[in-house]
Design a protein around this nucleic acid. Structure first.
Length: 425
RNA sequence: GGAGAGGUGACCGAGCUGGUUGAAGGUGCGCGCCUGCUAAGCGUGUGUGGGGGUUAAACUUCACCGAGGGUUCGAAUCCCUCCCUCUCCGCCA
């Protein structure tokens, strides 16, 4: 959510943001409603002031044994008037509020303006595409030998777009999760946290998934609960409606959680195997920082995620998302894509974003600064990283001609129950 | 699912026979003083959000005692609905 004052004073900037992000918010309507609301507020305040004043006089007059019946009946009229205006006011307030929730965050100045994902800007890469002396297989072909995954039976249990990790596949995935968690905790100083993955509507609005993306979320209708599409929702709302002392900032949390996405409208697009599934596991980093540090924090978090991939020895590239790809709530986002030689393409495994005060405003996460002023924190989050596509790249990059795979050094200590495959030194 | 208790400021906690209570008292925190360290003591200050106003302040006004309605000239205080927390019982991992 943007500050209404900011919107009033920067109409063009907000309009550009709406246009460049392809949103539909009606800014002119909002400005009219805002004006109307303030006018009502003014009338309401004045009437209330009158009412408060007289209400204080009445007991004194009564004490002095004076007749108040006429005054009281006069106030009855004012009271009715106040009620009427108050109703109008709350109606327009909630209307205005729900419109404000549809205004996206403003892109940061160095975010490229674009029309499609092709306009994302290449920032850097690490490593290089691995060369093979044989034709590398993709993860599904490899799976015919490895039997790490079982999509048929997953579909039997739940439907299409669900996965099952079996035996060593399950062990390998768990190793990835544990490795990433420990890495962030020990090397980067994150605090681990484990939160509900079923959340209320308020939380989903707080981080900006709602109202825009309701169709993409799993809803538990009976209780109006949602399954989180990312741990970001739970972690960011951890501090909702609080005023934090500045001394506890910055806060760095890391959490592993399943993520649930309906992926409505994306059927048939990049859905092969583990590429796009309705439920997957992810290690997520979230930070709460003072505003002046949020952009250096973004760079730090990018490094945090990069180091995971470096440790895994996976070639990747980093993109600065253009306005076309930038999410509703983000001001700036880096995507990290890793190379999968069998599939012959890059897979997005991490999005690292600065939301500035956008989420903080929605979820009301504030802090008392050194100067004693109450301010909104800046929130950031990034995958560190998602497991399915990392799993794809891992087995495709480390495959041998005989269909077996090697295991990178950093995962070895996590693979005690893992037999039969070769270990890479 | 059944029974009960409760939700007040950064925190604890009064008020809840309706009207100087935006809210006592305490803790914490800020500032000043005092005490040669540590600790203690004394004084003083310390809510959030909106509107009006100002170059900015000052100033002024309204709202907010879980949320939303209602009663009333007037509600933290009375009534209704909902949400949440805690305790006990039941059920179950």
């Amino acid at each position: 959510m943007l500050d209404i004052k900011f919107i009033r004073e920067n109409v063009d900037i907000v309009k550009d943001a709406i246009k460049n992000k392809n949103e539909k918010a009606d800014l002119d309507k909002i400005l009219i409603m805002d004006k109307k609301k303030r006018k009502l507020q003014f009338n309401y305040d004045n009437l209330r002031a009158e009412q408060n004043k007289v209400s204080k006089e009445i007991p004194e007059l009564k004490k002095a044994k004076k007749d108040t019946s006429e005054l009281i009946s006069e106030m009855g009229i004012i009271s009715k008037n106040i009620k009427k205006i108050s109703n109008e006011l709350s109606e327009i307030s909630s209307e205005l509020n729900s419109e404000l929730l549809k205004i996206p965050n403003i892109p940061y100045p160095d975010v490229p303006i674009g029309k499609s994902e092709d306009d994302n800007k290449f920032i850097k890469e690490w490593g290089e595409k691995k060369e093979f002396s044989f034709k590398p297989l993709d993860h599904l072909e490899l799976n015919e030998n490895l039997h790490y995954l079982d999509f048929k039976r997953a579909a039997k249990i739940s439907g299409s777009g669900f996965s099952a990790y079996v035996g060593n596949g399950a062990i390998l995935e768990r190793a990835l999760i544990n490795f990433m968690l420990d890495f962030h905790i020990q090397k980067h100083g994150y605090k681990e946290i484990s939160l509900p993955v079923i959340v209320n509507r308020k939380s989903m609005i707080g981080t900006g998934q709602l109202p825009k993306l309701e169709e993409d979320m799993y809803l538990v209708e009976q209780d109006d609960f949602f399954l989180v599409p990312t741990a970001e929702v739970s972690i960011t709302n951890f501090y909702a409606d609080e005023i934090l002392p500045y001394t506890i900032l910055p806060q760095k949390f890391v959490s592993y959680s399943p993520c649930f996405r309906r992926e409505a409208g994306s059927y048939g697009k990049d859905t092969k195997g583990l590429q796009r599934i309705h439920q997957f596991n992810k290690v997520e980093m979230v930070r709460f920082v003072q505003p002046e540090y949020s952009y250096e924090t973004l760079e730090e978090m990018l490094m945090d995620a990069e180091e995971i991939l470096q440790a895994l020895g996976l070639h990747y590239r980093v993109l600065n998302l253009s306005t076309a790809d930038l999410s509703f709530a983000a001001a700036k986002t880096y995507d990290i894509e890793i190379w999968a030689p069998g599939s012959k393409k890059y897979f997005e495994v991490s999005s690292i974003s600065n939301f500035e005060s956008f989420q903080a405003r929605r979820a009301s996460i504030r802090f008392r600064d050194v100067d004693d002023k109450v301010k909104y924190v800046h929130t950031l989050n990034g995958s560190g990283v998602a497991t399915p596509r990392t799993f794809i790249a891992l087995i495709e990059n480390y495959q041998n001609k005989d269909g077996s795979i090697n295991i990178p050094e950093c995962l070895r200590s996590y693979l005690k129950g893992f037999k039969e495959q070769r270990i890479l030194v």
